[in-house]
């Protein structure tokens, strides 16, 4: 079953179209990467799922049901622009936020004590938020987001403000929550964490969905017949040997070891390439190039922009 289904959702604000006919599906118990440049419409989409704003048209289904007020208890939302009441004590504040998400006071206290011990921050309970560092406050926010064990977690840039050690802790927590049954929508500009965590992605650019699907499929879709050749020998002889069926993308040299990235064109195969260059060089390594999410992001975004300009 899909945790979230968005069907033909559009939304505009006083003349400006924020979302244009977006449809996407988030399968249950997966981590879904919601990507896109700044201002593309991700936050608007997230706010619609959180029922902060309503779509002009289209439909949103959560766990097979049309979006309804009680669904706020099933969602945990960590907005990108987030904060806490500075003058309130950490524990008091966490209790308040937990109760707003429908937990009783005793449940909230029990769960919070648990999390505070797990994150080793029990002594912060009676501190005021203004005494905490940014990273500490981010931890509290993460806890209050997941505390009520929501079925759908929406995390907008969850790693900002964390040092690498805490990034690792949060990463492990996200994976653990997924394994325990939660579905997670992760919105981030950090493409390496997308590669590390996400099972599915959706990319929004200029208020339209330009790309979506399982991460592997998306990457294969963008994969070309490209290889990275590492070799010893004369680089000039090597480039001369390449005929029209091969496109040299990059080259780099380290002493007498050279590395080149090559695109195969017109149906040429790796064997053809090797046959062509073997007489002039000595091969050290051959590796297929799989496009990174970083490259896919840039290609997809620039591709749609060119498309629109044309």
């Amino acid at each position: 079953m899909n945790a979230l289904e968005i069907k033909n959702v559009s939304k505009s604000f006083s003349g400006h179209q924020a979302l244009h006919d977006i449809s996407l599906e988030v399968p249950e118990q997966t981590i879904f990467g919601l990507l896109g440049p700044n201002g593309a419409g991700k936050t608007t989409l997230i706010r619609i799922v959180n029922q902060i704003i309503r779509p002009d048209s289209g439909e949103v289904n959560l766990f097979g049901e049309c979006l309804k007020p009680d669904h706020v208890f099933d969602i945990g939302y960590l907005p990108e622009e987030r904060g806490l009441y500075k003058k309130m004590k950490v524990g008091e504040q966490a209790m308040y936020l937990a109760q707003l998400k429908g937990l009783s006071a005793s449940e909230a206290r029990k769960k919070l004590t648990n999390w505070f011990e797990r994150f080793d921050i029990a002594p912060w309970w009676n501190k005021k938020v203004e005494e905490l560092s940014k990273g500490m406050a981010q931890k509290i926010q993460f806890i209050t987001t997941v505390l009520h064990e929501p079925k759908l977690l929406i995390l907008d840039e969850p790693f900002s403000g964390f040092d690498p050690i805490n990034v690792e802790i949060i990463t492990q927590e996200i994976l653990r929550l997924r394994d325990n049954g939660a579905t997670i929508i992760l919105s981030t500009h950090n493409m390496s964490s997308v590669e590390e965590l996400c099972d599915h992605i959706g990319l929004i650019n200029n208020s339209r969905l330009v790309l979506s699907g399982p991460l592997d499929e998306v990457r294969n879709q963008f994969a070309r017949e490209s290889y990275k050749l590492t070799f010893k020998g004369n680089i000039i002889a090597f480039t001369n040997a390449l005929w029209t069926n091969y496109e040299l993308i990059t080259k780099s040299s380290n002493d007498d070891i050279h590395s080149c990235e090559i695109n195969l064109l017109n149906g040429a195969r790796l064997n053809d390439l090797l046959n062509t260059v073997l007489p002039v060089i000595e091969i050290v390594e051959v590796k297929p190039i799989i496009p990174s999410m970083h490259d896919i992001f840039i290609e997809a975004v620039e591709g749609t922009q060119k498309h629109e300009e044309a």
Partner: peptide, 12 residues
């Protein structure tokens, strides 16, 4: 200014 408002209006 604290930016807590979005957290809260996702609950109420």
């Amino acid at each position: 200014t604290n930016r807590i408002v979005e957290v809260i209006i996702s609950s109420v």
